[in-house]
């Protein structure tokens, strides 16, 4: 009986010590994970800033005009087509009703 009591006492002491040591270990682990998270958040923010800067309209316009040779549509080149009210594919073709911009370019060019 006495041996059992000593054994239980030792176990309790061991558990207490083990718990304290493990708390320290988990504490370090949490701190490391927090640090990792902060580093990842910084990387994410840095990428977000870069993405936003690269998608700025003036940069896109510059690339479109200087590198890709694109330009603003001329008068009449934009055609608005109403979508079908039933959601079906393609425009609602009714030439008398569909309002589209004139497709003539200035100077009679087409």
């Amino acid at each position: 009986m006495r041996i059992l009591a000593v054994f239980v006492g030792l176990c309790l002491v061991f558990m207490f010590v083990w718990e304290r040591v493990d708390m320290v270990r988990v504490g370090y682990q949490i701190e490391r994970l927090k640090h990792d998270r902060v580093m990842l958040q910084r990387e994410r923010d840095e990428l977000q800033v870069k993405f936003s800067a690269l998608s700025a309209p003036d940069r896109i316009a510059k690339v479109a005009s200087e590198k890709l040779g694109m330009g603003l549509p001329q008068q009449g080149q934009v055609i608005m087509v109403q979508s079908r009210p039933d959601g079906g594919p393609g425009p609602q073709v009714a030439p008398g009703e569909v309002r589209v911009a004139k497709n003539d370019l200035p100077g009679g060019r087409r």
């Binding site: 934009v78 055609i79 608005m80 109403q82 073709v93 030439p95 008398g96 569909v98 309002r99 589209v100 911009a101 004139k102 497709n103």
Partner: peptide
């Protein structure tokens, strides 16, 4: 949409 209705054929 523009106010100038033009038939699709023209486009």
């Amino acid at each position: 949409s523009s106010n100038e209705p033009v038939k699709l054929a023209m486009a």
